[in-house]
Design a protein around this nucleic acid. Structure first.
Lengths: 130, 130
DNA sequence: CGGCATCCACGAGGATACTG
DNA sequence: CAGTATCCTCGTGGATGCCG
């Protein structure tokens, strides 16, 4: 997820998969969702985001913020005060996305243990053939 | 286990984001969804998948397949016939995931033009300050 | 047919430092 | 405070070749 997406390898995966892929590409990048979630609570400042999204670097925060803004998922408001103050806020579109993301969360939570068990079983069967 | 992991880089982003991130990580990798969609139609063979998921390499197909199988999203059935025959089939859990993925598709389609316009506007305003 | 192993290219993203 | 710029690492995934 860079400002200049040179590697747009996403082509026609499957007729039905295209739109999904599109969303996934937009939401991917490991930080987008975190930022979206943090901003979903209400207007939030740059530094606040930096602290809210654990582990993100200044660079990636800026980059991801720009992308989200570009896609119309976040609005950027600059207050020309002496200590600069910038606030980010999710748009209605992003809020809708957030809602559907919640479905995914739900799915993840419901099957978390099942998946985990599946992994353990798989690993046991494939890493310890003895 | 000298293989490289396709896209399982789960981390702690934000308390609320964790589960989402977990799903996203599992579904990311650019091929998982395509494979899931192709397999959702019913049992499908390796070569069929290779053709169904446009642009995927043999390597990535195998890798992603393994990950999906490991997570219990796909079942792998080997028929010990003379020309080897392996069939992959989505599990109920994966089918549920597929359903929620459809919500995302819906979101993407509903806001596709909006987002596209937002991008154009953003680019116009930021790349051509004149 | 259905893989796995190897080599390699590229770009996402971390660390660090500087600025308005 | 809110970025921007630069360097560098390393994971992701493409290409190719061999094997059961």
């Amino acid at each position: 997820m860079s400002q200049r997406n040179t590697g747009v390898t996403s082509q026609a995966v499957t007729a039905e998969a295209c739109p999904v892929q599109e969303v996934l590409d937009r939401v991917s990048g490991k930080w987008s969702v975190g930022i979206l979630v943090a901003a979903a609570q209400g207007p939030i400042r740059f530094t606040e985001l930096e602290r809210a999204v654990t582990g993100i670097s200044r660079r990636m925060l800026t980059l991801t913020l720009r992308n989200l803004e570009r896609d119309g998922l976040l609005t950027r408001t600059v207050y020309p005060t002496v200590p600069p103050r910038v606030e980010y806020e999710v748009t209605p579109v992003a809020r809708e996305l957030y809602e559907t993301l919640l479905r995914l969360t739900d799915w993840a939570e419901r099957h978390r243990t099942t998946i985990h068990r599946s992994r353990v079983a798989y690993d046991a069967e494939h890493a310890a053939p003895a």
